[in-house]
Design a protein around this nucleic acid. Structure first.
Lengths: 342, 342
DNA sequence: GTGAAAGCGCTAACAA
DNA sequence: TTGTTAGCGCTTTCAC
C-alpha cells in the first residue's frame, strides 16, 4: 500500500493525504479522520526511502563501533545501543549499526556522510586524543560522543559517566579503610575512560599524600588472564598491595583467581573493588552498592545520548551540549566484602 | 557531489556515468576509467535513498532482537551481529538494528516490511514454537533464523549451533567419568536453544540407562544468582549431584560460589561443565577445550547467516537453506578441571 | 481545504 | 557506445 493507492481509494489527492497524515493544519478534521482510518486499516506506512529522498532527512542515526578483528563486542556498547534504540523508536528514527575496523574509520565516516544514509552519528570509544572530532566537523555530520575526548579544545556534544569521580571515590574508600598500597588494574590509557579513571585514582592518592607506586599499576586489554597475571605478579613481589582497584569485572575475575591461588581470602586478607559489575548479570540488588556504571545506567545513558543527538539535529543552535552522569560509589557482588586494615 | 554534478563535470550523461560506476559492460574502458577517477577524487558515493528508490532494493538488512525492559542485551547476539556486519560491508549492505519488545514484535515486523526499509531480516531468539515464521512468510520478507524453531512443519532458512549434540557429548563425558547424578541448569525451555540442550542431555542419560532425576533440573533466566540458588539447594538436599552441566558461564559463576560455600572443590569433589565460556572473555587458548559456542564461532556464525540471507535475496530459488554448525566439546577455564569419580 | 505539478537522486527501458 | 526519458514514492510550492 502506497500513497497513490491510498489516495485513490479515498478519492483524494496524494497531497491531501500526505498532509493529513503529517499533521498539517490546513486539512479539515473530517478528511483527516477518514484518511487516518483508511491508512490504519490498509496498514499504510510511508516508504522511508522515498520520504527521505523528498525531505532530505534520512530519519536514521548511525552508531559506529570501532572493533578490531579479535576484539569482543563490548557489552557496554550493546546496552548503550539498546537504550538509544528506544529513543529512535519513539521519534521514528532507524538505527544503523556500523562496525569499523580502526584503520579505515575515516573512510567509514566519509562514506556514511556521502551516502546520505543518516542524519547523525554516535561515536563510541573515544580516545584521549581523537581525530574523529575534527573529521566529523569537517564533513558536517552532527554527532554525539559516548564518552569524552580529553586532549582537545574543540567543542562537541558528549555524554559520559563520571569515571574520574568514581575512581577517586573508590580509592578514597580504600584509603579510609587504611589501605595505602592500592593496585590499579586499568584498561589501555589511550582510551579516555581509562585515562580518566587513572586521574581519579591519582587524585585520591595525592589528596592523602600517598605517593604512587608505579609497580602497582598495570594497563592492558580487559581480559581475565590479564587480571590473573597482573595480580599474581604483584602478590608474589615484595610489598604486595593490600587492595585492588579494577577497571572491569572480567579482569576482577582473574584477580580473584590469583588471590585464591595465593591462599588469600577476599574481604579478610585483601580487598577488591571492581567496575561494571552489574554488567556481568550479577544481581546487585539491595545490599550491594553500585560502583560506576551499571547495566541499567548504561542503557539510560544511551537513551539520553540519542535524545541529545536528535535535539541537535532538530535545533543546531543548541550546540554544544554535554552531560556528565553521576553514579554513586559501589562494589560488586563478584568481589566480595571490603576489608578494613587492622 | 551527486550524479548530476559528476556527469556535468565529465560532460557525460548521468546514465553513462551510472553505468560506468555500476560495471555495465557497454561502457568503453576509457570512459569507465575517466569516470572512476573523477568519482574517486570527487569522493562521490551514490545516495542510497535514491538508489534504492529507483531499484526497489533497500540494500539493508534488519536484525530484530527481542528484549524485555530489564533483560540484558545478550553478548551472543552482539558477537553474531558483529560477524554479520562484516558480510554486509563486503556486499555494500547496511545493517539496521531493531530492538523489539516481545509484545509488539508482530507490528515491528509488519512495519519493517511496509516501510520498505530492508530487503531481509535476521530473526534472533527463536522459540520452540514460534509464530514469526508464519508471519514473515505471510508478509513475504526473506529471512534467516539464528537458531531453530523446533515445533513446526514450515520450511525456512536457519543457521544454528549444534546445541543438542554438544550437551549430549558433555553429558556423556561426565558419565564416562563415572557420574550418574548430573544436574542440568538450563535456560527457559520455551526457547529453542535451551530445549535442544535438554534433549541432548536426556539422550545421553537414556543411552546409558540412567533415569532422569527431575529434581536435578532447573530452568530459568541465565543469571548468577539463579545458578547460586539452584546449586545451593541441590547441594543441601540428600543425594546431591556430583556434577553440574550449566547452560551459561554466568550461571556457572553462581554455581562456583555455591560449591565453594559448601566447602567443596571443583575438580576434586565435584565437576562443572559450562557453555559459552569464551564469551566471558576468558582466554581458552591451548589447554582448555571448547564447549559449544565460543565468541569467535558465534561471530563466524553471523558471517555465514548473513551470507545465507543475501544469497537468498539474490536467488530465491535456493530456498530453503539450513546450516548446522558443529563445534567440539569443551570445558571452560571458569569451571576448573573435571573430576573422575574414584 | 484541496489539487496539480515539480523535484529529491538515482536506474532502466528505449532510441540513436 | 552513449543519450533521452520516464519513473521509483514521497513532499512541497503554488494555484485554485
Amino acid at each position: 500500500m502506497n500513497l497513490k493507492q491510498l489516495s485513490e481509494n479515498l478519492g483524494l489527492s496524494q497531497t491531501t493525504v500526505s498532509r493529513a497524515l503529517n499533521g498539517y493544519p490546513e486539512v479539515s478534521e473530517s478528511t483527516r479522520l477518514r484518511v487516518e482510518i483508511a491508512a490504519e486499516k490498509g496498514n499504510y506506512r510511508p516508504n522511508m526511502r522515498a520520504m527521505s529522498l523528498a525531505t532530505g532527512k534520512a530519519m536514521a542515526i548511525a552508531h559506529v563501533i570501532p572493533i578490531a578483528k579479535h576484539d569482543v563486542f563490548n557489552p557496554v556498547f550493546a546496552e548503550f545501543i539498546a537504550g538509544a534504540s528506544q529513543t529512535y523508536y519513539k521519534y521514528g528514527y532507524e538505527l544503523m549499526l556500523t562496525i569499523a575496523e580502526a584503520k579505515d574509520e575515516e573512510s567509514t565516516y566519509r562514506a556514511i556522510a556521502a551516502k546520505n544514509a543518516v542524519d547523525g552519528v554516535i561515536v563510541h570509544s573515544p580516545l584521549r586524543q581523537d581525530d574523529r572530532l575534527a573529521l566529523l566537523k569537517e564533513i558536517g555530520l552532527p554527532f554525539v560522543v559516548h564518552g569524552r575526548v580529553c586532549d582537545t579544545n574543540e567543542e562537541y556534544n558528549w555524554l559520559d559517566m563520571n569515571n574520574r569521580r568514581a575512581f577517586k571515590q573508590a580509592t578514597q574508600l580504600l584509603i579510609d579503610l587504611g589501605h595505602t598500597d592500592i593496585a590499579l588494574l586499568n584498561g589501555p590509557e589511550s582510551m579516555s575512560f581509562a585515562w580518566l579513571r587513572r586521574c581519579g585514582y591519582l587524585e585520591a592518592l595525592g589528596n592523602n599524600k600517598i605517593s604512587e607506586r608505579t609497580e602497582l599499576s598495570t594497563v592492558g586489554e580487559l581480559t581475565e588472564p590479564n587480571g590473573y597475571q597482573a595480580a599474581t605478579a604483584m602478590l608474589a613481589a615484595k610489598n604486595p598491595p593490600s587492595a585492588f582497584l579494577v577497571s572491569s569485572y572480567i579482569v576482577a575475575l582473574g584477580v580473584r583467581r590469583a588471590i585464591s591461588e595465593a591462599g588469600l581470602t577476599i574481604g579478610k586478607d585483601i580487598s577488591v573493588i571492581t567496575h561494571d559489575d552489574e554488567l556481568s548479570y550479577f544481581d546487585n540488588a539491595g545490599a550491594v552498592p553500585q560502583f560506576t556504571s551499571t547495566r541499567s545506567s548504561v542503557r539510560e545513558a544511551g537513551v539520553l545520548a540519542a535524545e541529545m543527538l536528535l535535539e541537535q539535529i532538530d535545533n543546531p543552535t543548541l550546540y554544544p551540549q554535554t552531560k556528565l552522569l553521576t553514579s554513586s560509589l559501589v562494589m560488586g557482588s563478584s568481589t566480595g566484602p571490603f576489608r578494613a586494615l587492622s
